[in-house]
């Protein structure tokens, strides 16, 4: 591991006027942002060849704090915008960060189709099981029966498994981690960034302000303990897709690379010119 000095780490942020950030005390998103930046630094990704793109939501505010090209798009639309950026400048490293509401609900259609097209993009899905920015409504990942501000009598909907959908839609690499397992999280992000093609890291994160309060889990520390006790490594389970009551963490899908969209489209250009 390359030693990351404090200076190099801080230089990756827009420190002058962008801090303090807007996140609540105890939120997991800061942990994810810091871990992501450490992964960029360890992999030697330059700030001038990186574009971080998001939609709308708490985790979608992350790009605004990073000192690189950043694109805060519309709610759910980070992936089509990232597709446009990647097709226009394939040499850029394109990373998308967003929440469970942003990427799996309003952006769900874009998520499956970007995976199907195999754009060379890494997506970090911050799953805190709720819409934090708007005050704790139920999301596509909120477990059935749980309460939310818009499910005062319990959620009757079934929830999505982000990783399962990513794999089914054609992602090259799918991993899950949590904000408790920071070293593990960094490893998963690095593996995803190194994978050519569409890669997804689902990060289970704590939202003590809304989700923790509605479920009676408690404050940030209690929530981190909850993440720790609920998680199990993929090596410890016979079939990660069948585990319903635990967060299975680790690499869940890593397939042999196929050419990403930009490479295939280059061959279209060559055929068109013949």
């Amino acid at each position: 591991m390359i030693d990351i000095t404090q200076d190099r780490f801080l230089n990756f942020f827009r420190l002058d006027e962008r801090f303090p950030h807007i996140l609540c005390p105890g939120c997991g998103i800061g942990t994810i942002m810091g871990t992501m930046v450490r992964a960029f630094l360890d992999l030697g990704i330059s700030q001038d060849e990186l574009c971080v793109i998001s939609g709308i939501g708490c985790s979608s505010r992350v790009p605004g704090y990073l000192d690189c090209d950043t694109f805060h798009t519309l709610h759910g639309r980070a992936l089509p915008a990232a597709t446009g950026v990647k097709l226009a400048k394939p040499e850029l490293k394109v990373v998308v960060i967003g929440g469970d509401g942003d990427i799996m609900a309003i952006g769900g259609n874009h998520f499956i189709h970007t995976a199907r097209r195999n754009l060379d993009i890494t997506v970090i899905v911050v799953n805190n099981f709720t819409y934090g920015m708007t005050g704790g409504q139920y999301s596509p990942t909120t477990p059935t029966h749980e309460k939310a501000s818009t499910a005062p009598f319990g959620n009757v909907e079934r929830s999505f498994d982000v990783c399962f959908i990513a794999k089914a839609a054609g992602a090259m690499f799918v991993a899950r981690s949590t904000t408790f397992h920071v070293a593990h999280l960094k490893k998963m992000i690095e593996l995803a960034l190194n994978k050519k093609g569409f890669s997804v890291v689902e990060v289970i994160s704590q939202c003590p302000t809304f989700y923790g309060r509605y479920q009676g889990i408690g404050d940030a520390v209690k929530m981190l303990e909850w993440l720790k006790s609920r998680s199990v490594d993929v090596s410890k389970v016979p079939d990660p897709w069948q585990v319903k009551d635990r967060f299975v963490i680790g690499v869940l899908h890593d397939q042999q690379e196929v050419p990403p969209y930009t490479e295939l489209y280059q061959s279209v250009r060559e055929r068109a010119r013949e």
């Binding site: 798009t73 915008a81 597709t83 950026v85 097709l87």
Partner: peptide
């Protein structure tokens, strides 16, 4: 694209990248 929302957002992305 998968729909017209995706189309315009994809176009906005390409434009932001200089095309």
């Amino acid at each position: 694209m998968e729909d017209e929302i995706g189309s315009i957002c994809c176009m906005n992305g390409a434009t932001a990248a200089g095309l």
